[in-house]
Amino acid sequence: EESVKIVRLVKNKEPLGATIRRDEHSGAVVVARIMRGGAADRSGLVHVGDELREVNGIAVLHKRPDEISQILAQSQGSITLKIIPATQE
């Protein structure tokens, strides 16, 4: 059973501070990098390897990473992410 986590981040004009990529094996959209000091890093709630399912209620599974980045870039104020946390080894 996948544990889905709802994360709310507050982002002003600054970038979210995370990059995403598509996992070639599973097809999932995952967090590739977290930039120090960005909104994602400061929240402490988003981690490399987390699978991104939704951004502000928009399912991202069938979107290209550049489309998802665009949605994230255009979002201001509160951003709600639905993520499946990376499995902690």
Rank of each mutant, 00 (worst) to 15 (best):
S3P: 15
K5M: 09
K5I: 15
I6V: 13
V7A: 07
R8L: 08
R8Y: 07
R8S: 09
R8I: 13
L9D: 09
L9K: 05
L9Q: 04
V10P: 10
V10R: 10
V10M: 11
V10C: 11
K11G: 13
N12T: 13
N12Q: 09
K13Q: 12
K13V: 07
K13T: 10
K13Y: 10
L16C: 05
L16M: 09
A18L: 15
T19F: 11
T19I: 13
T19A: 09
I20D: 00
I20Y: 06
I20G: 00
I20F: 15
R21Q: 12
R21P: 00
R21G: 11
R21Y: 08
R22M: 12
R22G: 04
E24G: 08
H25W: 10
H25P: 10
S26A: 05
S26V: 03
S26G: 06
S26D: 06
S26W: 01
S26N: 10
G27Q: 09
A28C: 10
V29A: 09
V29R: 03
V29T: 10
V31C: 03
V31T: 01
A32E: 14
A32W: 08
R33I: 01
R33K: 15
I34M: 07
M35F: 14
M35P: 04
R36L: 07
R36M: 07
G37S: 05
G37Q: 04
G38I: 00
A39V: 14
A40D: 01
A40R: 00
D41T: 01
R42A: 08
S43Y: 04
G44M: 03
L45I: 08
L45W: 05
V46L: 15
V46E: 02
H47Q: 09
H47Y: 04
H47P: 01
H47R: 09
V48C: 07
V48P: 07
V48W: 03
G49C: 01
D50Y: 00
D50K: 00
L52N: 01
L52S: 00
E54G: 03
E54C: 05
V55T: 01
N56W: 00
N56K: 02
G57S: 06
G57D: 08
G57T: 02
G57V: 00
I58H: 12
I58K: 09
A59F: 05
A59G: 13
V60S: 03
V60W: 01
V60A: 06
L61H: 15
L61E: 15
L61S: 15
L61P: 10
H62T: 12
H62G: 14
R64A: 13
R64C: 11
R64I: 03
R64S: 15
P65T: 14
P65I: 15
D66G: 10
D66L: 07
D66F: 11
E67N: 03
E67R: 04
I68W: 05
I68T: 04
S69Y: 14
Q70A: 13
I71D: 06
I71A: 07
I71K: 03
L72C: 10
L72R: 02
L72N: 03
S75D: 10
S75V: 11
S75Y: 07
Q76T: 14
G77H: 10
G77I: 03
S78Q: 12
S78A: 12
S78G: 08
S78W: 10
I79Q: 04
I79T: 09
I79E: 03
T80Q: 08
L81N: 05
K82L: 01
K82P: 02
K82F: 00
I83C: 05
I83G: 03
I83Q: 03
I83Y: 05
I84H: 09
I84W: 06
P85Q: 07
P85A: 06
P85N: 06
P85G: 06
A86T: 10
A86F: 11
A86Y: 11
T87E: 15
T87W: 08
Q88F: 08
Q88L: 10
